[in-house]
Nucleic acid binder design. Structure first.
Lengths: 270, 270
DNA sequence: TCAAAACTGGAATATTAATTCCAATAATGG
DNA sequence: CCATTATTGGAATTAATATTCCAGTTTTGA
């Protein structure tokens, strides 16, 4: 209306974000959908967008006008312009990012993205289906799931705990900030998920040992099979995450962990 | 005519190349232009293509039919599909998995790996280099870095904290297990990294607001730009992570986060 | 509680683009 | 060179899509 039409994608998202709160219900639905699926506009018709956003075509139309465009066609033109030069060619894009200069943030990001991608690929190839299946089966029958992981492994452990929580599966996260472990809380019919990478945290190893001694199944998420404490009760899940510098993006490990949780949830509810 | 329509870009180019020689003049012009500008088809109308190829629209039409498509629309559909790899609807896919009875851990893992891969690609394409650069610059100059993220964002926050620790960069992780925040600890020259995804944790938002009011720079890692608290001091880093079911692999977000940390470390030591 | 304003859904209309058709032209073969 | 067939250009038709309009509904403010 009175406002200028955005002239590039950033201006567009910024403007939508700004408006979003003051917009009436249906227009806000449009805003939300378009914010998250901006690029869809390039290829979709008004009708398609409106259906996915659960509004009438006319609402989408009004939305375009509120944002400052003459109509949907104008907005689509903008999105197409900004998409076209790129032609989402991943490898080319990564190449460009890498060339940005050695310690530039984008160059570093490119390396981590690439490392993450390779790790994921690696994971999908090397995953031991039998072990995974066994792990899920074990978890599905557990009364209480104990989770332990420190340092690099802690984000994985905490995300697992969060996922189980959401799935309403009883779990305990050991060794959080206070580094406390509650070995004595491990009872019959419980299971321990231990996550540790070289060089291994002694606390995690100790807890795993403790669990083994008490006869509990242990699922071990690690980067090498070198610490098979005890072949009979330990289910090893190996993830070889690619390092960049001293760090890893954890992409593969987290994917494996979350799959474990979701599969367990599915198994339980069926 | 009765020939099969190509089903992907390679088949298409192959077929055109094959036909090219036996085609009459105008159709050969079409072939030549389309071979070299295949991707244009995704965005252009028949009229536009025909003009650029110096032929009549009807010639383009005939060309499409000769290649095996029903019409221009079909050919366009094909090109669009291959340019924009799907953008799969994951909530639908998990439904499909369930219905297909394939909720095996391996199948679920495959989905998460795929979702992670796509998120990483997406990130490499949509990352805002300027914002990233600004974020690193800000962090490099910070006296103390505050980190806040709850629920899904907590693994990211804790990994960031771990990385900064390893890099010997002073940092505080707020809102850990006890959900405690230490707003009063935020002083002049500090910086806050706030991580939150829809639906946003009110605690994180509040801490960010507090920081803004105290005049501290805030770096916001989020999935939509919809909560730009204050454009002047907040640096927004947007990651659109693909959901699978109710969960995400966090691949893209963690890659971004770890890059931020490493780049900051590099900047500081130089 | 009521009147005015804002919002919404769905149908009606206008625009634009795809597709077909046919007469005119050019190529081919005897 | 003529008859036949293939190709072409452009207009006419059809289909799809964007856009507007308005009556019904909800929200707002006094």
């Amino acid at each position: 209306m009175e406002a200028q039409a955005p002239e590039n994608l950033e201006e567009l998202t910024e403007k939508i974000a700004l408006l979003q709160d003051r917009l009436p219900k249906r227009l806000r639905q449009c805003a939300a959908y378009i914010l998250q699926n901006t690029h869809e506009i390039a290829f979709s018709t008004v009708a398609e967008i409106s259906e996915k956003a659960n509004v009438q075509p006319s609402a989408v139309m009004r939305f375009c006008q509120v944002v400052g465009f003459g109509g949907y066609t104008d907005m689509q033109k903008l999105v197409r312009q900004t998409i076209q030069p790129g032609i989402p060619d991943y490898s080319e894009r990564i190449q460009n990012l890498r060339e940005a200069g050695d310690d530039s943030p984008t160059a570093i990001l490119a390396e981590f993205v690439e490392a993450g991608r390779q790790s994921l690929e690696q994971l999908s190839i090397t995953v031991n289906e039998t072990a995974l299946e066994k792990a899920v089966e074990t978890l599905a029958q557990a009364r209480l799931i104990h989770i332990m992981g420190l340092r690099r492994a802690y984000p994985v452990a905490s995300y697992l705990s969060y996922a189980f929580e959401k799935l309403r599966i009883p779990n305990v996260l050991h060794g959080g900030e206070g580094r406390l472990t509650h070995a004595e809380a491990m009872r019959e019919e419980d299971v321990l998920i231990a996550i540790t990478f070289a060089s291994y945290s002694s606390e995690t190893i100790e807890l795993a040992d403790e669990a083994v001694q008490r006869g509990l199944p242990v699922i071990l998420i690690s980067d090498t099979p070198s610490l098979l404490v005890n072949g009979t009760v330990v289910v090893p899940l190996i993830v070889s995450e690619i390092d960049f510098g001293a760090f890893r993006s954890l992409s593969a490990t987290l994917s494996l962990a979350i799959s474990l949780a979701v599969a367990t949830g599915a198994r339980r509810s069926s």
